[in-house]
């Protein structure tokens, strides 16, 4: 596997805006694995799994898993212990 074979959380913006009313990529979240705080836009996104997997740039733990079916989305966020969402 190419160690640079990832994109970043910016590319999740469209998928997440279909689900949420605001831009989640500009939110800060905490990794449930290592406690690192970071923007969702800064996560490392891998596309070779079924769906999209966003990993922590600090410890590589899975933060977000998103799988799309034609009529629904499956969103696993258990790797993030919280999100700080700007509302201004």
């Amino acid at each position: 596997m190419d160690p640079m074979d990832y994109m970043d959380g910016n590319m999740l913006a469209g998928e997440l805006r279909e689900i949420f009313s605001m831009d989640v990529t500009a939110a800060r979240g905490r990794c449930a694995g290592c406690g690192r705080m970071g923007m969702v836009a800064e996560t490392r996104v891998y596309q070779h799994a079924a769906g999209l997997v966003a990993r922590c740039p600090g410890c590589d733990a899975v933060l977000i898993r998103l799988v799309r079916a034609p009529d629904r989305a499956y969103l696993d966020l258990h790797g993030m212990s919280f999100l700080e969402v700007p509302l201004a």
Partner: peptide, 9 residues
């Protein structure tokens, strides 16, 4: 087209 999206960059 879907967008505009992305509030970070």
């Amino acid at each position: 087209v879907r967008g505009p999206v992305g509030g970070y960059f």
